[in-house]
């Protein structure tokens, strides 16, 4: 799309884009370039000079058991976060959509977790599940289940998934509610007159009509689980126990800052860069399509 009417000015447009371009170059292209450059080198053991290894860092990465495990950890984590958060949110949205009185009060009570930082969500859930003093850990102990996410990888994963999904419920709820309210009521009423029960109507009519929203949220939630959950992991498990919650973004940080393995960290950055690129393209393809609905 182009504007018919434009202003003519020799230098003003450059002046206007300059601040953003400057920031973009210094804090985006320069570091991204650095990441690609560094991914082709390894520092010698004394850190005095670096040695060119070409794609060696990548070869090493993809032959490294821990890195491959981190991929599957990320996949499991993202699927669990996405599915649990979206299904709970959809259930709430369906309920809120059926309510006539007080729906705005319900909405207010459901949207605020959006504002809670992932790191704070981590602290809250860590507190409830603290193996020695946490209220839920204590309740579980009363029914004979021992909770210690510092030792049990499965429990650690469950906890970071719960905290991450909890924080994302509001977002999914808002979009599902908007999607539900956009469905013409005449369609649903027609089915009701035909005598279809609510859940039958839901699965045969409402859910298919909601599919654009669902697909959109799928992409957004996967991106969230990949990149925005660092705070949750870092506050609750630090990737442990035995790397069982080390997702890719956490590994870039752990190898780069804690392990000081810059070549590997840079190579991981490049891998993630490609992954984000793919996800963004998927998101835009889909959204472009959505505009034409």
């Amino acid at each position: 799309m182009e504007k018919r009417v434009v202003f003519n000015n020799r230098w003003l447009p450059y002046l206007l884009v300059a601040p953003q371009l400057l920031v973009t170059f210094v804090f985006f292209f320069w570091p991204a370039g650095q990441a690609i450059y560094q991914s082709a080198f390894i520092p010698d053991p004394f850190g005095l000079k670096t040695q060119f290894v070409g794609l060696g860092n990548f070869e090493y990465l993809f032959g490294n058991r821990y890195y491959l495990e981190s991929f599957s950890t990320t996949a499991i984590f993202s699927v669990l976060v996405t599915v649990s958060s979206m299904s709970f949110a959809l259930w709430l949205a369906v309920l809120a959509d059926r309510v006539i009185k007080g729906s705005s009060a319900y909405r207010t009570l459901l949207i605020w977790p959006y504002a809670v930082a992932p790191a704070i969500a981590g602290v809250l859930w860590l507190f409830m599940f603290n193996p020695f003093t946490g209220i839920i850990a204590w309740m579980l102990f009363q029914v004979g289940y021992v909770w210690n996410h510092n030792l049990d990888g499965g429990q650690a994963m469950a906890l970071v998934v719960a905290a991450s999904a909890w924080k994302q419920i509001s977002y999914n709820f808002l979009f599902f509610l908007a999607g539900l309210q956009a469905i013409p009521k005449s369609v649903i009423e027609a089915a009701a007159i035909d005598g279809a029960s609510f859940w039958r109507r839901f699965w045969t009519i409402i859910f298919p009509l909601l599919s654009p929203t669902t697909f959109f949220l799928l992409v957004v939630n996967v991106i969230y689980a990949f990149f925005d959950t660092f705070g949750v992991i870092h506050t609750i498990t630090q990737g442990g126990p035995q790397q069982s919650t080390t997702i890719l973004v956490y590994k870039v940080f752990a190898d780069g800052f804690v392990g000081q393995d810059l070549g590997s960290s840079a190579a991981q950055s490049v891998v993630l860069l490609v992954l984000v690129g793919i996800l963004t393209v998927v998101q835009f393809r889909f959204i472009e399509r959505r505009v034409h609905y």
Binding site: F29, P31, A35, D228, V252, S265, S269, T280
Partner: peptide, 25 residues
């Protein structure tokens, strides 16, 4: 060109380019 340069920043959350950005800063 400028538009696409700016657009590309959509694809890189700070978590991804964390080490080199730290070095630049």
């Amino acid at each position: 060109l400028f538009f696409w340069l700016i657009f590309m920043t959509l694809m890189l959350p700070v978590e991804v380019r964390i080490v080199p950005t730290y070095e630049v800063v």
